[in-house]
Amino acid sequence: MTPVLSKIRFRDAQIEMAHGAGGKASRRLVEGLFAPILFEGSQDPLGDAAFVDVDGSSIAITTDSFVVKPITFPGGSIGELAVNGTVNDLAVAGAQATALVVTFVLEAGLPTELLEAEIRAMASAAHRAGVVIAGGDTKVVEHGKGDQIYISSCGVGHRISGITISPKTVRPGDRVILSGPIGDHGITILLARGELDLEADLRSDTRSVLPLVQAMARAAAPGIRWMRDPTRGGVATSLNELVRDCGLGAVICEDKLPIHDAVRGACELLGLDSLHIANEGQFLAVVAQEYAETALDALHRTDGGEEAAIIGEIREQPAGTVLVSTLYGSKRIVDMLVGDPLPRIC
């Protein structure tokens, strides 16, 4: 089967860092180069996981890779991200992770002590998340050709009963729920790099969101339309993807966004928009209006969901656009991230 070359829309001459940042450039790469060749024939919008038919059963499958510097940081490490990230991708697709397989690309010269610590962190995280690590692969590259450790993990799981989600089911009036405070992970990493000389009492929020998704499903499954985990690119990017996929609009109320003081402070100081900062332990859900309070209540009563909030709603207009509204009635558009968030002084 030959690929239909006319559908390849990716015109960049070389790959840049922006293509991995999770924003517009990443989306262009996936939609413009990978999808036309690899996902030929598929009409579905790209989601966090795919459901495939294996012997008559519908299995969810996903993969993710983890490249982070530094590899350990307050609240976690690359190993935990690798487990939780994949469990979360499955959870927000409406699936419970059963097993993971992991691949390590290790840089020659990496102290064994460091590797052992990561493997232990992964075992711990897998245990906490209720998932089995069934196998893996290891490759070693020359010193200087890889940032200590790269991990990629592939997860499989089965549907959480009652949940069928698709951007096509989203309707005006649906509520947007956020599971907890934004920006903790991204800002923690930024500070942990040590280049900016900032200190704060912040930890990465990396965790499995599966228990929260399950709690919400038990209370409000018929009302859950769409979910996503706002990792690289932040809440703004995830919501922009949604509005593009469903053809509607979203309005977020700035004052309803849960955010820790230190994240706010760092964003103000560096001129960053908290809506573009990565999260590793949160999810967004669009829930039908009549189920929204029940869903929120279920989150509040679950460990780790205390700070969940309804942050906005879906509107018919402006289509394809995410607006943020302030307490005093003015609005601004918030777009997908372009490249990595850069601190500014002006």
């Binding site: 900016l196 402070g265 100081l269």
Partner: peptide, 8 residues
């Protein structure tokens, strides 16, 4: 101290 963030 800037809203909970500290810097020299």
């Amino acid at each position: 101290d800037i809203v909970g963030v500290r810097r020299k």
